[in-house]
Write a protein that binds this DNA or RNA. Structure first.
Lengths: 240, 240
DNA sequence: CGATACCTTGACCACTTTCAACGTCCGTGG
DNA sequence: CCACGGACGTTGAAAGTGGTCAAGGTATCG
């Protein structure tokens, strides 16, 4: 199922060195973490954890995208978090997974056994301080998302989602249009993230294209033709 | 506007002593916090912070209920968090309020100046460890709420809300029915919490009463006549 | 006793979902 | 190399849920 990855990155050369839970660790602390960590990789689509599973590890996402999701018994599901590189999965003080976690793209995790990590945290304020910030950032993001889920229309949700992709890639050009962007998820996954159906996602994307706001080059790639119109369509107002 | 409260509680006698951010502090640490804290009270309905305000303080809720909320420019509003006693407001590392905070009932906060608190945290793992737990609990709660906002029907939302009130008060009786419970919020506030309109809140409560699940004694008080039916109406399945 | 805020109910409407059919892309194996 | 199959995506028509607008009812506090 899950294949143990064979590469080991040195912490000092790790792509998330400056943002992850270890970002404030000094050389001595880093050496300790270096000795505790292990890597694990998951293929796109693979489950990483199911709600209720025992968690022996906590982990940082090194690369790839994982989703946290939750379901009702009849199958309705809601994505409740996107885990991007440097995000942190699990809690030192709890052994049970609260959500389903799945690899959305190929994912590499940097894992630490839970109990040794808890001990390390107790001795290393640099780590717990950074973990507080990471967790509070996720909490703020979750609360922003609640406004979208509760109060935005389908068109606003789609525009917000596309706008996020633009911002995330930092690709706004002076002259207006943006370079071609990739949609990293299927229509169904976008629907589960935005609390829509896949049909509505499809229709609203088509509508934004008809209105000249965006343009699809193929199913997975689009250009923003009118960034200002896209921003207005998010419902957030002129600036954000 | 905000009146400085005149009472001072000793930390050792504080009602949230065992759950708040200070819960793991030892006597020496508590003595330091005792010297840093101040109390502030707010009347029901009063604003505590507006999004974008400068925050000089972080604070624990001592008693009362505060709401975090967020709005779109056209006035649509979503409550994104209920702050109950022992919950923590603000971040040591950020000066700007991310959300509107308002007192829902009369509220007392135990406040600490931000910068001294940040320094204290750096020196006191007991505090930062507990803050991580509090923050992660809120994150889990926010994610649970996302499932409700995104995927539950109006009836399920109302049933979930009423069910929460039952659980929170720990009042389930063996024989089925429960003692009279108070609705702590107006229909409008409930609507902003559940992402509905106040009319829909009213209609769904009436519907649950017609179906014999609950019974209103007056506008602010109800009995649960059929706890099992209420549980089923939440959409969470038989057990939860 | 009147003013005001809160709540209920009805009629109508809009938006999103549901259900269904069809289209497109892509990898696998004949 | 092409054909097939399966996953993914689009579009249409109909239905249903919740929202909007409007009117009237009820509680509470001067």
């Amino acid at each position: 199922m899950n294949e143990q990855s064979h590469f080991r990155i040195k912490c000092s050369e790790c792509p998330i060195r400056h943002r992850a839970v270890c970002s404030r660790a000094d050389d001595a602390e880093l050496a300790v973490m270096e000795g505790m960590k292990s890597y694990q990789t998951y293929k796109a689509g693979e489950p990483i954890l199911r709600q209720g599973d025992e968690m022996k590890f906590v982990a940082s996402v090194v690369h790839g995208v994982a989703t946290l999701s939750q379901s009702l018994e009849d199958g309705r599901t809601q994505v409740v978090g996107l885990m991007l590189p440097s995000d942190f999965i699990g809690r030192a003080s709890r052994a049970e997974a609260q959500f389903d976690v799945a690899a959305s793209t190929d994912v590499t995790l940097c894992q630490f056994e839970r109990k040794p990590f808890a001990q390390l945290m107790a001795k290393t304020p640099h780590i717990s301080e950074r973990l507080i910030e990471i967790t509070m950032d996720e909490l703020d993001a979750a609360r922003d998302w609640m406004l979208l889920l509760g109060r935005k229309t389908a068109r606003e949700k789609i525009a917000t989602f596309l706008s996020m992709l633009v911002v995330r890639h930092g690709l706004e050009l002076e002259d207006g249009t943006t370079p071609r962007l990739a949609l990293p998820l299927t229509r169904e996954k976008i629907a589960n993230y935005l609390a829509l159906t896949l049909e509505t996602v499809s229709r609203q994307m088509t509508a934004l294209q008809k209105d000249g706001v965006i343009e699809f080059t193929d199913r997975k790639h689009f250009n923003v033709l009118d960034p200002r119109a896209l921003q207005l369509a998010t419902g957030n107002g002129e600036e954000d």
